[in-house]
C-alpha cells in the first residue's frame, strides 16, 4: 500500500462517514421538526397535552374558540362539534364534546388529529383531556359523544381574538384491528344513541 493509497482511503472513509451522518441527519430532521413546530407553532400542531396548572382566569378577555370537524377521505362517520363556537376566558377550563356516529354496519376505529389556526395560538391552547389522545372505536351504527377539556393560556398574545381548533378524523380500522383490546378507554365516553 503506497502512501497515496492510504491517503485516498483515509479521505474516502471520512467522506463516507459524512454521507452516513447526513443520512442520519435526514431522519433527525423528523424530531427536530417537532421541536421547531413547538417553538414557532408551525402548522398549528398541538403539542401541549395533559394536565396543566394555570394561575388565575383573565375575565377581562374573551376568546372565541371555533371547533371544526373534518373527515378525511374514506371516513364515513358523521362527525361534528357539539357546540361549534364557544366564548371562553383565558385560564378557564372548558368542557365540550364532539359527536361521532358510525353509519356503517361494521366496527371501525378512528383517530382524530388536531390542528389550530392561527398557528401561533397552538402553543397557548392546552388540552387537559381529549378524545384525540386515543384511538376511538365505534361499533356499527353506534353514536358517541367524545369529550374535550381545554384551557386557553392567559399568555395568549393580545392580537389573537379567535382560535380555531380543527379535528380531522382518519379511518385507521385495518391497522389497529389486531390490537383493539389495548385501545379506547370507554369510561370517558358515553353511549347516547344506538
Amino acid at each position: 500500500m503506497d502512501a497515496m493509497q492510504r491517503k485516498n482511503l483515509r479521505l474516502v472513509r471520512r467522506l463516507i462517514l459524512g454521507c452516513l451522518l447526513m443520512f442520519c441527519f435526514g431522519f433527525a430532521l423528523v424530531p427536530l421538526y417537532d421541536v421547531f413546530c413547538k417553538v414557532t407553532g408551525l402548522n398549528g400542531k398541538v403539542l401541549n397535552v395533559g394536565p396543566v396548572s394555570i394561575g388565575g382566569q383573565d375575565l377581562a378577555r374573551t376568546i372565541k374558540v371555533q371547533l371544526i370537524a373534518v373527515n378525511n377521505e374514506g371516513m364515513p362517520w358523521l362527525f361534528k362539534a357539539q357546540t361549534p363556537q364557544l366564548e371562553v376566558h383565558p385560564g378557564e377550563t372548558r368542557k365540550t364534546a364532539y359527536l361521532a356516529h358510525n353509519p356503517t354496519a361494521s366496527r371501525m376505529v378512528a383517530q382524530a388529529i388536531p390542528s389550530v389556526a392561527p398557528s401561533e395560538a397552538a402553543q397557548y391552547l392546552h388540552k387537559v383531556n381529549c378524545f384525540c389522545f386515543d384511538q376511538q372505536p365505534l361499533e356499527g351504527f353506534e353514536t358517541r359523544e367524545m369529550p374535550l377539556l381545554f384551557v386557553v393560556d392567559p399568555e395568549l398574545p393580545s392580537h389573537i381574538k379567535t382560535i380555531t381548533l380543527s379535528y380531522t378524523l382518519f379511518d385507521i380500522t385495518p391497522k389497529s384491528e389486531q390490537h383493539t383490546e389495548l385501545i379506547g378507554d370507554r369510561s370517558t365516553t358515553r353511549r347516547i344513541w344506538l
Binding site: 377521505e73 374514506g74 371516513m75 364515513p76 353509519p103 380500522t173 385495518p174
Partner: peptide
Amino acid sequence: IDIVLNGKSGTAMQA
C-alpha cells in the same frame, strides 16, 4: 347504496 353513501375506505371512492 352503502358504497355510494359512505365511500370505500382506502380507495378513491368518496362518500
